[in-house]
Design a protein around this nucleic acid. Sequence first.
DNA 1: CAATAAACATACACTCTGCATGTAGATTCA
DNA 2: TGAATCTACATGCAGAGTGTATGTTTATTG
Lengths: 198, 198
Amino acid sequence: MQERLERRTNRDRSEAMRALLIETARKLFAEKTYAETGTPEIVAAAGVTRGALYHHFADKEALFRAVAEHEAATVAAEIERAAPDGLGPREALLAGSQAYLEAMRAPGRTRLLLLDGPAVLGRAGMDEIDGRHGNRTLREGLAIAMRAGAMQRLPLAALTSQLAAAFDRAALAVDAGSAMADQMEVVTALIDGLMLDA
Amino acid sequence: MQERLERRTNRDRSEAMRALLIETARKLFAEKTYAETGTPEIVAAAGVTRGALYHHFADKEALFRAVAEHEAATVAAEIERAAPDGLGPREALLAGSQAYLEAMRAPGRTRLLLLDGPAVLGRAGMDEIDGRHGNRTLREGLAIAMRAGAMQRLPLAALTSQLAAAFDRAALAVDAGSAMADQMEVVTALIDGLMLDA
DNA sequence: CAATAAACATACACTCTGCATGTAGATTCA
DNA sequence: TGAATCTACATGCAGAGTGTATGTTTATTG
């Protein structure tokens, strides 16, 4: 229901349509699987046709990529918002991990970002996406901790990805009903294990 | 090319056909994605028709499950074969981790078990599969280490899954070209971090 | 050896994806 | 400002894939 059909600029139309499609697809991809969600269903829910979709996105995978990108940015923003700065390296890492697990409790988010994402876009594709968002923060946090002499010196890329993987699995476990406290206890132990006892 | 078409029992026919389909599908699922591999291609490569496939498996997903099961068992067997026993808890864990990373270097295995697997069968589905194979060994190794007083006491399920996730990501990284030494260095650090300094 | 069931092949209906073509609205420029 | 052009989107079509229903052959049962 548009209230007014006044003259709209092409740029506005495009942005609005892209946003509408991404948001509608996000909702559906969060409810069902990527494979189970057809483009006819997406455009029907958005009230447009597949012509609009394929005009703005090369294919279904490109739409999914845009959705994943948006969702990763949202998660990063939620973490940033919940992260008080002025903390020491260890506390900053723990606060960030906790915030990540909280952010990933949004319905369907784990499947979208942690199951379908890697399968559809590949590990490299997902790395590229959340290397620009969430993981960047983690990587920097680890680098800072190492430079401050609070943490063991280890290959940064490998450490970042393996820790991120542990957090991801923790988020999936919480989503599957595991107690958040249990998961955070292990996350804390992993991080503390890397710290150098001052 | 069958050499002889002698009278075969139904049980033999079924087992042979199931094995043929699983092996053929495994090969294709290792080369391409689950989504990219159609059932017509699978049965063509096996020299049979889709009728055979749908007689033995409820659907394409069921075939994939059988393939994943088989592949997980293979990995577990390779690890077991490379694991000398008589090691201390820490050394056993490290040897197992190393063997896992080696086993996962088989072409396409990471995508099959670590990308498509979770997406197609769900995390729960994959957990159920490798809870019967690889992860069982890890869980027991951790339990032993904790009982022996060599490792911190932590929630076993959470610790197992998070460590396994780190190993999985390490395997994916190696597959993507990362240095095995870097990944093993981090794996070692994570495990050592959990050990209690005697 | 007739009857039945299992193993597999063939054929069909349905759905999805991607593209090609058509149309309305926006932008450019004389 | 209005014709030409381009962008945004809709409609229609071709190819492919999945699952099922039905047909045929081979094994099993009594």
